[in-house]
Amino acid sequence: MVNNSNNGITLNREIKSEKEFSLKKFFFQWEWLLFLIFIAIHIINSQLSPYYLNTYTLLDATMTFLDKAFIALSMTFVIIFGDIDISVGSTIALASVIMAVLYNAGLPMPLAILVCLLVGVIAGFINGILIVKFKELSAVIVTLSTMILYRGIAYIILENQASGGFPMWFNFLGWGYIKTIIPFILVAFIIAAVIFYVLLHKTTFGRKVYAIGNNDVASLFSGVKVDKIKIIVFTLNGLMAAIAALFLTSKMGSTRPNIASGYELDVIAMVVLGGVSTSGGKGRMIGVLLSIFIIGFLRYGLGLVNVPDQVILIVIGILLIFSVMLSNLKLFSNKS
């Protein structure tokens, strides 16, 4: 069609549409590094404790950290936007407290669980709508406020008490096994992870999330419903926080308003270590999954040899900083 000898453009040139395989590009991916760390942690752990390397231990270990990992799945979407949601810990508390109080007030447990999920959805939706309607405020500030607010409401409801006494079957969420050795939470998490992986990498929704994270103005001009997608993602994040609340409450057996405090930081650390850039637009689900298990097993392994939790915090903090430092070296192609 364009064929004008006047301006020196002569023939339409062929534009390649097949990717050339580059060995260097293939290996210089963030996920490989995470994979190496993952292996290293297992080697170190097995050196530290002779009981570590067996299937039961490893499978059981996942029960200790997978509750918050559910939020990491949806938080990945939030951080790909270049946003952040620090209200998730408080959302857990609010959803869990309301569920416990309603159950103890006589609501059947299945309904209480439904309310728990609903609270998460509403909490996330409020975040989303505020962030979308007040674009001049950052997500940090909005979720900072709701973080204090949501936990505050949990305190109003339950004051400084604990509430529990759930039916036996509810324990299954946190403590149950499938085929006697596979923890139920692991199965649930794998299902959730697959869903989120497909959503992010294979669907138009995921593509639009990346687009918004890279350039929200250009996305809007390209017909992406930026506001709607943002609200959906924040609502989803609230829902995942509520799901985490279910597992966590089941594991603890009871709840308090101060439950899951500081969770937001753990979740963000999981996502960022997984190679999702907080400046938005970049990162993959595989990396996040690897990093969830790295942090989880690291914690568990050090816990086995009685390293106090605070020391593990140091390790995680340093790991986080080093990983970002390394990824800043631009060695790694970290594309969607």
Binding site: I84, L265, I268, A269, V272, G317, I321, V324, N328
Partner: peptide, 15 residues
């Protein structure tokens, strides 16, 4: 090292 403040301070908080 161009680490985003929220990440750097989050990490160092732990440390």
């Amino acid at each position: 090292f161009n680490i985003l403040p929220i990440i750097a301070t989050l990490g160092m908080m732990n440390v």
